[in-house]
């Protein structure tokens, strides 16, 4: 999953979507995942790094991660796959 390139997160977790004018706030873990996505990491790498760094088991984190990614999709913050018409 790729985050749209014009989306930036500030250190305090504030995120502004220049396409829509919407603003969001993210907690620390959410901001960290977003940075990882922006740097091109995929889901399995994120799961690996997170479960090493944080006190969380893989199943729980995976569930939370996909819920979060679902929200990013819901808010339309990810690159749409190219479709050929």
């Amino acid at each position: 999953m790729k985050i749209r390139s014009n989306i930036a997160v500030s250190d305090n977790g504030f995120m502004f979507d220049p396409n829509t004018g919407d603003s969001y706030n993210l907690n620390n873990t959410a901001a960290e995942i977003l940075q990882m996505l922006k740097s091109g990491k995929d889901e399995s790498e994120i799961i690996k790094e997170f479960t090493q760094k944080y006190d969380v088991d893989e199943a729980t984190f995976e569930q939370n991660l996909y819920d979060f990614l679902g929200m990013l999709g819901h808010y339309d913050l990810v690159e749409k796959e190219q479709t050929n018409y």
Partner: peptide
């Protein structure tokens, strides 16, 4: 500016 909005919203 969005920066004012950010400061107010976050702090």
């Amino acid at each position: 500016d969005i920066s004012q909005f950010e400061k107010l919203s976050m702090t």
